Amino acid sequence: MRRSEFERAVVHEFGPRASALTADLVLSTLGDRTATQAIEAGIPPRDVWLALCEETDVPVERRYGAGRLEPRRR
């Protein structure tokens, strides 16, 4: 997962709360960092996404592949 995919996934899942969650919610599984701090510290966006999902009880079926763009049609 790229950072842009992470950002799309967060906005898609959390809507207007997305920026507040990534900036303010401390994730204990990522060393007591926010999502923003974790990514800046070099933690892969996919790991941050999964930790954020776990902390906010996002259903498992909405976690995998989140943030990916649909393939282009030819």
Rank of each mutant, 00 (worst) to 15 (best):
F14T: 04
R63T: 00
V48P: 00
F14L: 06
F6E: 04
L69H: 11
R3W: 07
T22M: 15
E70L: 15
E7Q: 12
V60L: 15
R3P: 01
T29Q: 13
R2A: 14
D32W: 08
V11Y: 10
D47G: 03
S28P: 06
R46A: 14
R74D: 13
S28Y: 09
S4V: 13
A51H: 05
I43V: 15
E61L: 09
S28D: 15
D47E: 15
R46N: 11
A9E: 03
L50M: 15
V60M: 13
P59S: 03
L30H: 05
M1S: 12
R2I: 12
P71E: 06
I43F: 06
F6R: 04
P59G: 00
G67V: 00
R72C: 05
L21Q: 00
E5G: 01
M1P: 09
I39Y: 05
S19W: 06
V58H: 04
A20K: 08
R2H: 15
F14P: 01
F14W: 11
F14V: 03
S4D: 15
V26M: 01
L52M: 08
I39Q: 09
E54A: 13
D47Q: 14
P16T: 12
I39N: 06
R33N: 10
A66N: 01
A9C: 10
V11W: 10
R2G: 14
A35R: 01
L69N: 11
R8H: 13
T36W: 05
L52A: 04
L69P: 07
G31L: 04
R2Y: 12
A66K: 04
Q37M: 10
E40Y: 08
D57Q: 07
A66T: 01
L52E: 04
T22D: 03
R68V: 03
G67L: 00
